[in-house]
Design a protein around this nucleic acid. Structure first.
Lengths: 152, 152
DNA sequence: TATTGTTATACTCTATAACTATA
DNA sequence: TATAGTTATAGAGTATAACAATA
């Protein structure tokens, strides 16, 4: 019985959540095809395209708490997709690099992921997609400005 | 170091997820003010505005799996916000009703939630908000059409 | 037989405190 | 003393199988 949730549909945040949930249901099987999850895929993407970055910086870029990031990196390392190398200038830190296998897997996976992602926005014009991304950026900025107590 | 996640920013699904995460970080404290979580707030909203609906129908409307919905309803009942009444025509089923307390709490909570939700979209015009909601609806439809094998 | 609500279970993501080894 | 990575732990959301009572 759709319509029961009408009282919630005035909330953009509710629509965002429902949309995100649908989108992830569609994308998760694609990640799984390559033995990945959303978080490991995202990490692999950042490491492949930004070689040598420190573990903490990658976690920060993905807005993943460092403690939670440890197992993600560990999983990718155990799968032979990335390697941890002690940073030359700081023995506490790890620099992350993708292995050849990791780069090959990412190359295939990213094509499949992008394809599925495009299916999700099929029917929208380039201008509508642009407008969507802009609106999402506004929401992110408005969310942050409460935490940071910026000039909002 | 923002910018490390550039390879992911081409994905609308990634932007959706990051936006949803920010939005929920902003909204969760509002739910918490009223002793609620996102899921219990959503359930209370549907029950208040659709009295007498069956538990399973409410779960379906919110896209929550029935097993997971049991504890949500149980929590609201324990808090005295809703009541379960055996359906007159089906002894297996429960009809859900909000208590007076539940209605009062929802009245206050929904105002606060809507206010915070509006803050999130501050700066967007009515047309832009409309366009955002439309774009989200397209994504939901595109997600479903793969499952349902509709004419997509 | 099928359905409603339930229990049990497991997996993912998220969040925080406290530790270690370096700086 | 501060930071990078780690461990431990807990909470929340999500997903599936199997059961009892009822249809």
């Amino acid at each position: 019985m759709p319509g029961l949730d009408n009282p919630l549909r005035v909330l953009t945040s509710y629509r965002l959540r429902r949309t995100m949930s649908s989108a992830m249901s569609s994308l998760n099987p694609v990640f799984a095809e390559f033995g990945l999850r959303r978080t490991t895929y995202a990490t692999l993407a950042v490491v492949v395209e930004n070689p040598g970055q420190r573990q903490g910086k990658v976690a920060e870029a993905l807005a993943i708490e460092r403690p939670n990031f440890v197992q993600i990196v560990g999983e990718l390392e155990k799968s032979g997709l990335i390697s941890r190398q002690t940073a030359a200038d700081d023995k506490r830190a790890y620099a992350l690099h993708a292995t050849a296998h990791g780069e090959q897997l990412y190359s295939k996976a990213s094509r499949a992921v992008r394809e599925r992602d495009l299916e999700l926005i099929r029917g929208l014009t380039a201008a509508q997609i642009e407008a969507l991304h802009s609106a999402l950026a506004v929401i992110v900025a408005n969310s942050k400005c409460r935490e940071v107590q910026d000039d909002c």
